[in-house]
Design a binder for these strands. Structure first.
Lengths: 132, 132, 132, 132
DNA sequence: GTGGTCTAGACCACC
DNA sequence: GTGGTCTAGACCACT
């Protein structure tokens, strides 16, 4: 279900978060679906339960998933897409960093647009996510 | 010349690297130009010389700048834009991460394209960087 | 495990790198083996943790070792022996330097061949390193 | 006559020393030949006169060249090949370092032997330097 | 003057 | 526990 790279510089808990978010966007995980328990997930991806727990907590804080005491963890029914100005700035800065790296890697803007379109197709299979 | 945000989660040495790369792309720093010495830069941005040194060394490893023994540090004459497959993958993954974050932040693809076009204008002032 | 000579002109972090590489080649350190933590190694060889850290980071960049976040540092499973042209040139130049020094020190080529054969024996104890 | 790489990590004065020694071994510079003055050499290789001066002084200390006050600097008549134990150790250690680097660069011992033979040919044009 | 290395000691994020 | 980053201050070799 999920693949983690322990050698990556990206923290494992962030990798978990990203992968789960991606599955939600793609529609593989639908609102109401039950997630594996912390222990299950930990053994699946060979990680420390604490690490998985941290990812779940953070995802809950972001409103992506919800924990029902004694029942388990579920994908939230409503994804709150708050137009947070702080996040907008962060994303813009991240884009800037990527543009700079792309320049030095010799990657054209066109190439990047192509990739983004590809990902849009890949993501937006069952909702028009990026056209709201 | 350069502004650093000590509160940012991005390490200071990486901020220095990013800013210097940006100035090079914009053409503010031209090949052959001398950079401030490690100590000068450190006092300019109020950071430790070691931190600046780390940034310089990394930039040199990437081929962006060169140091001439005892003379100082200079912008490289030849910017090697090698189409490194590893870097391409990294950038693609970074884009994927951003797309996911953008989705949850409620930022449309169109908005991101707009930002990227703006940056292209901002960067490509005196060379057609992204159109080679 | 490792001996460092603080009086040597070779930087300590390079001495650490050399010794660790040597242990890997000799087979004393095997792929997957855990290295002493930065702090352990530092106290073992009586050096600053930063110095050890620098050695470890450089060895990782070269692909000799890998660090797993929060778990420690390990000998890489796959030693990539890429025939890098730049390194070949560097090694050839180093040999040239040694040949010149040897001439002025009155050391014969035969003597150097003998030393190299000795080292080959010393290194290739449990794999045929130099005969691949 | 001599080429220097200001970007190299090898100190410029050492580069000068190496090149001059090489020319002596090859027989391009013969005992009694006059070297360019410090200023001449400095302007030829675009270096600081102090740097050239340091190289000359060091070469004189090693007995490779001699300075005759008011007349200039000349290649020594007699090359003293002292079997200095300290230097032997240094060269052996340098060889060890090269062997390790060669291993990780995927260079075979045979390749290195070949290089050394080539250099022997290149050097020993008019004396049997390495067969004394 | 320049950058390169090292120490000492600190804080942080991650596992 | 781990490594990653940063500061402060020092010494050194090179130009």
């Amino acid at each position: 279900m999920i693949e983690i790279d322990p050698r990556s510089t990206m923290p494992i808990y962030e990798q978990i978060m990203q992968k789960l978010k991606e599955l939600c966007i793609k529609g593989v995980l639908k609102p109401g679906d039950k997630l594996p328990s912390v222990r299950e997930m930990a053994s699946m991806i060979i990680a420390n339960p604490n690490t998985v727990s941290k990812a779940y907590k953070e995802l809950e804080r972001e409103g992506v998933i919800e924990t029902l005491r004694g029942r388990g963890t579920f994908v939230s029914e409503t994804v709150k897409k708050t137009l947070d100005e702080g996040k907008m700035k962060m994303i813009k800065e991240a884009l800037r960093q990527i543009m700079i790296d792309a320049f030095y890697a010799g990657i054209s803007l066109e190439q990047m647009y192509q990739w983004m379109e590809d990902m849009k197709q890949e993501f937006g299979s069952d909702d028009d996510a990026f056209h709201k």
